[in-house]
């Protein structure tokens, strides 16, 4: 089953407004104004948000309240943004965070510092 085929939003009694999309690792994900990145991803069955630095372990939403930092992702190029605390925006670029995530532009190109 393709994971974008379903929607785990509860429909009852709610008008979420105008849907928009952002991208998750290049694929379009539907979201509604005010929704967190984590909620939108999970609504579409996307649950693996990052891989850890030390062991490459998959992680996703855990505490859901900003305390545990398990749901950190790369959002619009910035590493370690909590998906559970970040409101989705149209056109936002959300990516799985691998390890520490990407460096800012001014960072050393070699990445060789040790």
């Amino acid at each position: 089953m393709s994971k974008t085929d379903f929607d785990r939003r509860i429909a009852t009694g709610l008008d979420r407004g105008e849907a928009f999309t952002f991208t998750f690792d290049g694929m379009a994900v539907t979201a509604y104004p005010g929704e967190s990145v984590a909620a939108a991803l999970i609504a579409h069955g996307r649950r693996k948000f990052r891989e850890t630095l030390k062991r490459d372990m998959p992680r996703g939403l855990y505490c859901g309240m900003g305390v545990c930092w398990e749901c950190i992702m790369v959002i619009d190029g910035r590493a370690a943004v909590r998906a559970c605390m970040t409101v989705a925006e149209p056109g936002m670029k959300v990516e799985t965070q691998h390890g520490l995530g990407p460096s800012p532009n001014t960072a050393p190109t070699e990445g060789s510092a040790s």
Binding site: R8, R9, I10, L14, E35, S36, A38, A39, I42, A43, R47, K48, F49, M57, P58, R59, G60, L61, Y62, C63, G64, M65, E70, C84
Partner: peptide
Amino acid sequence: TLPGVVTAGGLQNLVKGARVV
């Protein structure tokens, strides 16, 4: 630590804050 394991508080927040399961 597997994705899909959430806390009780996390589940409640998803439902209350986004109506998502």
